[in-house]
């Protein structure tokens, strides 16, 4: 009797011993390499801080500056295999650069540094939704990602996308974005006809879609804020109420987190949350090592080992 299972087992042994050393098979398996590395660099709430804080005796004197950030990013690109460069919103407002130029040099700087994607913060509306769309269209060469603002009939309609899949090496990285509730935070004449949708429902829906499209990592760029004392939706609450999100790059609350927070999502799987203060004082770097594994009932079989590098 023909025993297929046995055939496969025996053939695999025979074929394996013959072919493992073969260059042809090695080349063919490049796209299914067993280990992949990915480096995520991120900022949030840079608030038009193009220059370092002036040397005036203030707490942050001499810190930040985009020319330094750009050099650091270049250095990291030279040593990392694959890089994704992200920002979690509030690019605009905070120095006279914005009062005079309405965000033009800020967006040009992000483009020059090679940012891959940003989400929208409440202050990015400060010059009005028309200005935001115009600056992004004229000077932005990166994705503007937000899934819980309905831009239908607004100038942002053809500028922003709900998500984007980036390919790095053999990895597919899905990025979605969530924005904060605008009513009561941003003057209505500035955000125009933007319709705010429930960030939990939209993030859940979008993350599931990205997972179903085969994304190895799902990142949520969030301008909701890290934590609040009340019921207001935050990154911590979003992480606990959703599934399929692996990493939340947050903003809005200007929290300088000592290291990323590891929390559980609604299925018990790990979600990493990070935020690097404001004003471009800090650049966050997350070096991921990927291996083939089983995504079990709780999305993930293994716990992610998170360590912090010191002395940076």
């Amino acid at each position: 009797m023909y025993n297929r299972r046995k055939f496969i087992a025996q053939s695999a042994m025979a074929a394996g011993s013959v072919l493992l050393g073969s260059r042809a098979l090695h080349a063919a398996s490049m796209d299914v390499a067993p280990v992949q590395y990915l480096t995520i660099l991120h900022t949030n709430d840079t608030h038009s801080r193009l220059d370092p804080f002036p040397m005036d005796g203030s707490r942050n004197e001499g810190l930040g500056g985009v020319a330094r950030r750009a050099a650091l990013i270049e250095k990291i690109r030279g040593e990392a295999e694959h890089v994704l460069l992200l920002d979690a919103g509030d690019i605009f407002q905070g120095t006279p650069y914005f009062n005079i130029y309405n965000g033009e040099p800020e967006i040009k700087a992000l483009t020059q540094m090679g940012y891959d994607a940003v989400t929208i913060g409440n202050h990015d509306y400060d010059g009005g939704i028309e200005n935001l769309a115009a600056q992004m269209q004229a000077h932005g060469r990166f994705e503007t990602i937000v899934c819980n603002y309905d831009f239908a009939g607004t100038p942002m309609e053809n500028v922003a996308v709900p998500y984007k899949i980036f390919k790095r090496g053999g990895l597919k990285i899905g990025v979605l974005g969530v924005g904060i509730e605008l009513d009561g935070l941003v003057p209505a004449n500035l955000y125009g006809n933007t319709r705010y949708l429930d960030p939990v429902a939209k993030a859940n829906e979008t993350a599931a879609l990205l997972r179903s499209k085969g994304c190895d990592l799902v990142i949520c760029l969030s301008h909701l804020g890290y934590r609040y004392s009340g019921n207001k939706i935050s990154d911590l609450k979003l992480a606990a109420a959703t599934s399929n999100i692996d990493l939340i790059i947050g903003g809005h609350t200007h929290d300088f987190l000592e290291q990323p927070e590891v929390v559980r999502n609604k299925n018990g799987a790990e979600v990493i949350i990070n935020q690097v203060g404001w004003a471009g004082i800090k650049l966050g770097r997350l070096d991921y090592r990927f291996e083939r594994g089983k995504r079990g009932k709780v999305e993930r079989a293994n716990s992610l080992l998170v360590t912090k590098k010191t002395g940076e």
Binding site: D216, Q259, K282, Y288, R289, F290, K309
Partner: peptide, 12 residues
């Protein structure tokens, strides 16, 4: 699937 197994954080 490829799963993240290890994560090293650096804050510059």
């Amino acid at each position: 699937p490829m799963l993240p197994q290890q994560l090293v954080y650096s804050g510059y």
